[in-house]
Computed example of a mutant assay.
Amino acid sequence: MKKLIRLFAMCMILILLLCSCGKNKGVDEQEEDLTPTSSLSIDEKAAAALSEKVPVILYFSDEQQTKLVKEIRYVDIAEAKKGAEVLASVMVKELIKGPKADKVKPLIPEGTNLRGPVKIEDRVATVDFTKEFVEKHPGGETLAELTIYSIVNTLTELKDIERVKIIINGKETKNFAGKIKLDTDFPRNDAVVDKEVGLAVPEEVGLTPVDGVNEYDPVGLSEYEGEDPLE
Rank of each mutant, 00 (worst) to 15 (best):
E94Y: 02
G98H: 08
V92I: 12
V69H: 05
Q65Y: 12
D43P: 01
T35N: 09
E204K: 02
K67I: 04
F176D: 08
Y224D: 06
E94L: 03
K2F: 08
G198Y: 06
D217A: 07
P36K: 13
A78G: 01
R163Q: 11
V193D: 10
A49R: 12
C19K: 15
E196V: 00
L182F: 07
T208A: 11
K97W: 00
C21P: 00
L4W: 01
T35P: 00
M12L: 15
R115V: 03
N113F: 01
E145C: 05
F176K: 08
T130I: 02
D62W: 06
N189A: 03
E135H: 09
A88P: 03
C11D: 11
E196Y: 13
L4A: 13
G83T: 01
L230N: 02
K131I: 14
D217C: 06
A46V: 05
A49H: 11
S61P: 00
P209L: 08
I13D: 11
P109R: 07
G220M: 07
L155W: 05
T35Q: 15
D128E: 04
K3N: 07
K3V: 09
L230I: 12
K67A: 10
E145N: 10
P109H: 05
V152R: 04
T208I: 15
A46Y: 04
L143N: 13
I57D: 06
K67Q: 13
K3F: 08
Y74N: 09
I120D: 04
V56Q: 08
K131T: 12
A49Q: 13
D183M: 02
T66E: 15
Y74G: 05
G206S: 13
L199K: 05
E145V: 07
K174Q: 09
N189Y: 01
E162V: 08
K97P: 05
A80N: 05
I77K: 15
G212N: 02
L87I: 10
G206D: 03
T184D: 11
G22K: 11
E196P: 00
E71Q: 14
V90C: 04
L34H: 12
I13M: 15
A191W: 08
A177E: 01
T208N: 13
D28Q: 13
A144V: 05
A80M: 02
P187E: 09
P209G: 04
I168W: 01
A48F: 01
E203C: 04
T154F: 03
N153F: 00
L4C: 02
A125M: 04
E29T: 05
